[in-house]
Design a protein around this nucleic acid. Structure first.
Lengths: 347, 347
DNA sequence: AAAGCTAATCTAAACGTTTCGATAGAGTCA
DNA sequence: TGACTCTATCGAAACGTTTAGATTAGCTTT
């Protein structure tokens, strides 16, 4: 900018004023500045600018796994939203590791991001202090943090699972396996209660041996499904709490020489683009990824636009059961009508 | 830092020296500084630091679509690699739009990223100047730019397609449809020549009516497949140049009441995690995403570590045909042995 | 024609670091 | 004891912007 000023024979203040349009600058000087900028190929240094004005127009986004289609989609939507708003987004993946998360959030905060979107990992208590100390707005995505009252957008996990289980019950299934993630993240807790309550609601008793917990990876889904399907009285249906684990579960089904839906019905959390083009066409619980991404972005943008001390907002969106053909009715029960249809509704 | 210095009754220079370990500072002062830092909760401002030292420890990464599993995987690997090296990565998605790309690269450069990884979009000529003007190292990913001699890592697209087509020929297919993207990006050009030459190599003539061009989206794959399968003498096999388009193609097959592989064999570019668990289990051309990501990162890191004016490097990696069960042998030809097996080899 | 506006431009101080060169004190050596 | 070398610390300038306030010049107004 100094060079531009010299070349245009004006002060740097005038160049700055011209570039930012903060003050009117005369035709003549504008022309000279414009020309100097072009000749020199000047580009404003956003770092120096950030230092001075105290804002970087950059946000930090940290998610567990970008290869999990749910996060892929949400990240994509968030990225687009901030792109439109003129923000850059720094992306971090924690790989479900608490230390990574800590390190990465520190890194983002060091870099003076204007805001933070966190789909957290591991134990929530650890994050509490960090979030409270960060003096930038934070919005929590998908996973809440106990005792932290910041903006957040989450799914109605309870309802979503309740609905899915109820659907299976209606088909006549009574022994429904559930592959979950660890309960240190809120969605897994809520999904678990959804599972329990759907059973109780149908007058069934909860059987602990039908739930297996993994670490959300494909391999965990595989071993969990292996265990479930090796039970003496194996489940006739399985619900997986996320997408990577269902891939593992399907492999287990295949490796045991079983097939879906003939031998075991399957439902999984999170929809994916080709669910209805390959077989079995999986019945899924689709999260409204577009809305989740947009709402998350807009909560943060609202804060960034100055609405700093409005009370914190908690948005909860509904999942939707996408019925395809990975669940078959069990003849035995289909006619008994034990379970009514009243409890099922999607959206 | 000023506050820390005051609280510890030392100069800011000493605080800086202590933090960075650039000079030895006495036990006594170290203690006072350490304590002041803790009390105040001081965090170094990386923006100010960057301004001074001229490096941001941040790189820019721009890809067409993060939801395309190929890019999802590569982005994931790249992100991890830079994370390990202590760099942050700013992610941009261009959505195959030239203006977005231009805007985003400007944005990244403004923010003084230390390096840039670009999986470009649209017409390459447009990017040439930008890359040459950027005074940071650039590595081109997946798609080269004519006349730009920067570091890059690409697939041997010619070989990969040649191999896939040869495989289909060996199965007896003679009319092989090809769904491609526009030829303004290098991989599409190379894949096209691979297709042609595999045919010529087998003594067949190239039939223009069997290739349909789309814009790499699912919808394009759908219409392209619709057209191909509506030909009076429809192809018995289809190769899709990327993953989103094959989803469209599979939908077209389904909607026409056809099935794969009985009525039409299918191969597509880019592997995905559940390819071998749903049916038809797609035969794919797997790109070595892990290696691609790692090599890309390491080329850039090498430059960032000071190896600035080594001659530019062009890494080309091999694809691998993952044979599953989406292609069936055509009885008619299987016994004639027109095509020899000699040309097929994977890896 | 003096005084008062307004518009255009400039000067200089910040933003929070790093780093060069200066300084002061404590040893060491002849 | 004086000259010298370390070692630990500091002062101040820089990095490239923005911006508040000062200055100047050109108009009105009376």
């Amino acid at each position: 900018m100094l060079h531009v000023a010299e070349a245009a024979r004006v002060s740097v203040a005038t160049v700055s004023a011209y570039i930012n349009g903060t003050t009117t600058v005369s035709q003549e000087l504008s022309g000279r500045i414009e020309q100097a900028i072009r000749e020199i190929g000047y580009k404003r240094n956003a770092i120096a600018r950030s230092l001075k004005i105290g804002t970087t127009r950059t946000i930090g986004l940290t998610v567990p796994h970008i290869t999990n289609p749910f996060f892929t989609d949400v990240v994509s939507v968030i990225q687009q939203a901030f792109d439109r708003a003129g923000y850059a987004v720094m992306l971090c993946c924690t790989d479900e590791d608490l230390n990574n998360q800590d390190e990465q959030i520190r890194l983002l905060l060091d870099r003076m991001v204007d805001g933070l979107i966190i789909a957290r990992v591991g134990d929530g208590a650890y994050l509490k202090e960090t979030v409270e100390r960060a003096n930038v707005p934070v919005v929590l995505l998908d996973r809440e943090v106990d005792g932290v009252d910041s903006d957040r957008v989450v799914l109605d996990n309870h309802q979503a699972v309740f609905e899915a289980i109820t659907y299976l019950l209606e088909l006549g299934h009574r022994r429904i396996g559930y592959i979950t993630g660890a309960f240190n993240i809120t969605p897994m807790r809520d999904r678990m209660t959804g599972y329990r309550e759907a059973l109780l609601n149908a007058g069934l008793t909860f059987d602990q041996s039908l739930v297996r917990s993994g670490d959300l990876h494909e391999a965990d889904g595989y071993t969990a499904a292996m265990q479930l399907l090796s039970l003496h009285d194996r489940p006739t249906a399985i619900l997986s709490a996320n997408n990577p684990m269902v891939v593992g579960a399907m492999k287990a089904i295949r490796d045991l020489g079983l097939s879906c839906p003939e031998d075991v019905s399957v439902i999984c959390f999170d929809d994916f683009p080709w669910a209805d083009v390959f077989n079995p066409q999986l019945t899924t619980i689709a999260q409204p990824v577009q809305a989740i991404g947009e709402q998350t972005a807009s909560l943060l943008l609202d804060r960034l636009n100055g609405n700093r001390d409005a009370p914190s907002r908690r948005l909860v969106l509904k999942g939707r059961l996408m019925v395809r053909n990975s669940c078959r009715p069990l003849q035995a029960a289909v006619n008994t009508g034990i379970v009514t249809a009243a409890t099922v509704s999607s959206g």
